[in-house]
Each structure stands twice: as structure tokens, then as C-alpha cells.
């Protein structure tokens, strides 16, 4: 149990997906202009990440590994993730229209989001068990959502600030990410 807690916080805070592992930067800069959309994007990523980890883990350890086909993992994983996103999108559309209206437009973007595939790879590379993989995905997704929300909060205020012309938009966001990353460095050694 303590191992699972350690994995969760390690993925969420110490080795934060965005700030330390550099995964999922496109949505981090693309969808962090408004708090509401940042939250929806974060939840969508968290959801897909969890399902993707739950599906890719058995595929790798029960299908590919026993047959010496580890080299197929990139092709198989990306196809599985692309299909999963489609299935999740259709399911949400049929069952919960409110949720679909909130998350709908972000789901297709997630297929080419390196965070999902990256976490699936991390689970394999770190030889996590099934439960550990799920917790790692949950932690990674929670960490992603957290920094996305913090970032959007800062950027909403930044719009009102007197930023030098050359720094407006993305450059100043990168500088904010720098400071955010330095702050997150303080979580190191926590566990």
C-alpha cells in the first residue's frame, strides 16, 4: 500500500508529467488560457490515461511479451489508444450529454497527446504491475490536471498584466512554467 501511495505522489508531484518529464506540452500551452477548459482537458486526459494503461498493460505482458513481440509495442499501443479515444467519445455521447459537451472537443486531440503513450511506456519500462500501472496513470493524470489548472489561473491574470510585446503569449507562458517547475522542485525528496 505504501508503495502505491509513493508511486501516486511520485508521478503527480515529483516527476510531474509536464514540468519534469515534458509530456503533454501541447495541451499544456494550448488549452491553458481559461480555467474552465483547462479543467475539462485535465479530466479528459486523466480518464483516457487510466483506461489506456488498463488496456495496454495486459496487451504487453500477456500478448506481446510471451511471444517475443515487444518490438510491436509502439504500433499496437498507438492503434489501441486511437481506438479507445473513439470508443470513449461514442460512449460518453450516448450516455451523458452534459459530460460530452464539456469534454467532447478535447477527446480527439488526445490521440496525438504524447502524455498518454508516454505513461503507457513508463508503466512498461518501470516494470510496474497491473495495479501499480493504474495508480501511476491516476497520479500522472492528477498531476497533469493540477499544473494545467495552476497554469490557467496564472494566465488569466497574466492577460491583465503589462507584458513586454515580444514576451506576450507563449514566451511568458514558458517563463511561468519555469517558475512553476522550480516551485515543484520543492516536492523532491518528499517520499
Amino acid at each position: 500500500m505504501s508503495n502505491l501511495i509513493a508511486i501516486f505522489f511520485s508521478m503527480a508531484l515529483i516527476n510531474n508529467l509536464v514540468l519534469v518529464n515534458f509530456l503533454g506540452l501541447c495541451p499544456f500551452f494550448g488549452v491553458s488560457k481559461k480555467l474552465s477548459s483547462a479543467f475539462s482537458m485535465g479530466v479528459a486526459v486523466l480518464l483516457v490515461m487510466l483506461v489506456a494503461s488498463a488496456v495496454t498493460w495486459p496487451i504487453f505482458h500477456m500478448l506481446l511479451e510471451p511471444h517475443g513481440m515487444e518490438f510491436m509495442r509502439t504500433v499496437i499501443f498507438i492503434l489501441v489508444i486511437a481506438s479507445l479515444v473513439q470508443i470513449i467519445e461514442m460512449t460518453i455521447k450516448r450516455t451523458n450529454l452534459t459530460l460530452y459537451n464539456a469534454l467532447g472537443i478535447y477527446l480527439p486531440l488526445i490521440t496525438t497527446n504524447c502524455a498518454i503513450l508516454g505513461v503507457a511506456f513508463i508503466n512498461i519500462d518501470k516494470t510496474y504491475g497491473f495495479l501499480e500501472s493504474l495508480v501511476a496513470a491516476l497520479g500522472a493524470g492528477a498531476g497533469f490536471t493540477l499544473v494545467l489548472i495552476i497554469m490557467s489561473g496564472i494566465r488569466e491574470r497574466l492577460d491583465l498584466a503589462d507584458t513586454p510585446q515580444a514576451f506576450m503569449g507563449t514566451p511568458i507562458s514558458l517563463i511561468v512554467a519555469t517558475l512553476l517547475g522550480l516551485a515543484f522542485l520543492g516536492f523532491g525528496g518528499m517520499i
Binding site: V20, F22, A166, T170, L174, I175, A177, T178, G181, L185
Partner: peptide, 19 residues
């Protein structure tokens, strides 16, 4: 060399090219 250093360098270079 820290991960944050990468954000910083790209941010500064980006602003420099715009300037």
C-alpha cells in the same frame, strides 16, 4: 540543465526571435 531550464531557454529564444 534542469527541466525548468529548458522552458526558460525556449521562452527567452522565442521572445528574442520576435524582438
Amino acid at each position: 540543465l534542469l527541466p525548468m531550464g529548458a522552458f526558460f531557454v525556449v521562452g527567452i529564444l522565442l521572445a528574442l526571435f520576435r524582438w
